[in-house]
């Protein structure tokens, strides 16, 4: 029985390390600003802004990687100039994450790259739903088998059937 709990202990430690590694890998992707925050704080460093491409504002040559549009938040919108690799996923009424800098003098956001909404919540949800029940199911099943071996070993009352000497682990 001790060996059984020890094995599961090792597995839990391994899984925890993996969770920590995963979190640290995506930590920087989690931080995004809203258009309102950008307008209020005028940050100077490179930032990630999340918002919706306003309908009817998208202009430019997408194949050459140049575009301008308005990025809408809850209340305010941000004028955006994009210059970078040809955007695969840019279209109107789509929520995107833009990576770039806020230019205070021209009051535009200069984006160099864009990313899809990360949806980490869904990914995390799927892994929790998929793996936790499976692990619990196996844990209780394995424990039951250990207990059954113990019980069979102890039930010497009906020893008449030849061999009941199994090692319970």
């Amino acid at each position: 029985m001790t060996a059984f709990y020890l094995r599961w202990g090792i597995l839990v430690v391994g899984a925890t390390i993996l969770v920590v590694l995963t979190y640290r890998n995506y930590e920087e992707n989690l931080a995004t600003m809203t258009p309102e925050q950008v307008l209020a704080n005028s940050p100077t460093e490179e930032i990630r802004v999340k918002g919706l491409v306003r309908g009817g504002t998208l202009r430019g040559e997408l194949e050459e990687g140049r575009a301008s549009f308005d990025l809408a938040g809850e209340k305010d919108t941000l004028p955006v100039q994009y210059e970078g690799p040809p955007p695969e996923n840019l279209r109107e009424l789509k929520t995107l994450i833009l990576i770039g800098k806020w230019k205070t003098p021209t009051r535009t956001f200069q984006a160099r790259e864009m990313a899809l909404v990360t949806n980490y919540g869904f990914v995390m949800g799927a892994y929790i739903v998929g793996l936790i029940p499976l692990a619990l199911f196996l844990f209780f099943m394995g424990r039951k088998v250990c207990l059954l071996y113990d019980e069979i070993k102890q039930s010497t009352l009906y020893q008449s059937e030849s061999d009941t000497h199994v090692d319970s682990r």
Binding site: G14, L18, L116, V117, T118, N119, V123, G130
Partner: peptide, 28 residues
């Protein structure tokens, strides 16, 4: 499974069309 999870969640790139959600494929 531990190696697969590491590859799927950390080492592999997102999909061009679905982005990060494609990682659900590795469990589904």
């Amino acid at each position: 499974l531990l190696v697969g999870l590491y590859l799927g969640l950390i080492a592999s790139p997102p999909d061009y069309y679905q982005g990060e959600v494609v990682r659900i494929m590795y469990i589904h």
